[in-house]
Amino acid sequence: MQIKALTSLARGQPGILHHITPSLISFEYTCGAIRKPHTLIFVGGLGDGLGTVEYLSDIVRALDPTQWTVFGLVLSCSYGGWGMGRLGNDIDEIAHTVNYVREYKTPQFGPGKVVIMGHSTGSQDVMHYINCPNPRPAHPVFDKDWTPVTRPEVDGAIMQAPVSDREGILWVIKCGTERDSPETMREIYNKAVDDAKRHTYEYHNSVDTVVPLSVTGRIGYPTSAPVSSRRFLSLVSPDSPEKPEEDDLFSSDLSDQRLKETFGQVGVRGLLKQQLLVLYSGRDQSVPPWVNKEALIKRWEKAMDADGTHFWSPWSMVIPGASHALSDSDQKEPRRILVERVTGYLNDILKG
């Protein structure tokens, strides 16, 4: 283990930089040299990196007087790398981090609690971690020399702003933009999907092709991040809801059977020891107005606990007035509720 003390860019908070692997790092928010037995591992969304999710600083401050520390994980797909990433690689890296944390803390404290928390697309990572086979299936193109990673159990899991990338893009297409009408947006989108399906890989089907930045930039993605045809098709999932892609976990039109294959597999996999906390933002800018948020999370709860188990945390809720990342100027009360829910949930985890 290689550990370095430094100060985080997030609010100047002190902590320790951990090298999980030579290329995977995580920042542990600490108060000086204080060590604590329990760990919350935080994973951001598309484009996020160290300190980019503002409300994390609120959680760190709230956990200061407790026995929990926060590890901010920087995945290989963080910042601008999300467009070339995939959930399978993400959960391998989360598994390495969980193992590292336990190896790092157990000699001093014994077995502490470990909870994983995802914001936005980080929620897809969390769900994928606890619901897919263990080890995960190999990718036919990128995992030819891959060594399977067996994911360790986690005591708890939190999903904040678990939104549908597909429905977000469809809303942009339906509304159009200042530059493009809905009709033009639909034409651009349809062509991008057709091209991505025809030319997903190149060089003997071993290398990703990339959707032109001029296309992804016009349908809502930042022009600074290249997006592979493979990840683009996973995010927009053009054959959903009948045949959803890997990233399409949270769309409101998915069938009960699909939810049984995702949320309903959590108990089967045995990777979540206690409960899942879901915090949906009541005023999420990424969610179309036709989505009934309360009804949607009720469907998730029903699918998860269909066999009589109780993996759904009673702390779960739609936070009134909360924006996607709770970063707007009017988010003081939603952030207070979020912190209250997270800390209450973590207290329950300690009680078992």
Rank of each mutant, 00 (worst) to 15 (best):
I130Q: 01
G220Q: 11
D165H: 11
V207W: 11
R269P: 11
L346V: 09
G344T: 13
G282N: 09
V342D: 01
R258Y: 14
A161K: 02
I337G: 05
F250Q: 03
G32R: 08
T69I: 02
R61E: 14
T52V: 00
S164K: 02
G12T: 04
E93R: 07
T177S: 15
H310I: 03
K302S: 11
E187C: 10
V154N: 12
S78I: 07
L87I: 12
V266H: 03
A325P: 02
A95R: 04
K113I: 01
Y221R: 03
D125P: 07
L6M: 15
E54K: 10
S229F: 02
I20C: 09
M127E: 10
S26W: 05
P65Q: 00
P37Q: 02
W68I: 08
N347S: 14
V339S: 01
W300H: 09
W171Q: 13
P133F: 05
R299P: 06
L9N: 15
L350R: 04
L276M: 09
N190G: 06
E245M: 09
K302I: 09
E340K: 06
L50N: 06
M304P: 04
T184D: 15
K4S: 06
P226N: 12
R61G: 01
V339G: 01
Q2H: 15
K273V: 10
F142H: 04
G118H: 00
I297F: 14
G12I: 07
K105I: 01
P222G: 12
S251L: 10
F109N: 05
D253S: 14
P288F: 13
F142W: 04
G112L: 06
L73F: 11
I130W: 07
L75R: 09
G47S: 12
G217T: 04
V154S: 05
D305W: 02
S214D: 13
G122D: 01
D64T: 11
A161E: 06
Y29F: 14
N347P: 06
D180W: 13
P107L: 04
D90S: 05
S214W: 06
M117N: 01
Y55P: 04
Q160T: 10
T30W: 02
V60A: 04
S252R: 02
W312C: 05
T343L: 08
D90A: 14
A157L: 09
P162C: 03
H19Q: 15
W290S: 15
V141C: 04
G220I: 09
E261W: 12
M304F: 04
F142G: 07
D90F: 00
F263S: 04
G12K: 00
G80Q: 08
P148V: 10
L75S: 10
H96P: 00
S255T: 15
L271A: 08
Q13T: 12
P288A: 11
T177V: 08
S313A: 14
G217P: 05
G15I: 10
C77E: 08
G270R: 08
T121F: 03
S164I: 00
R102E: 13
F42R: 00
S228T: 15
I169T: 08
P14W: 05
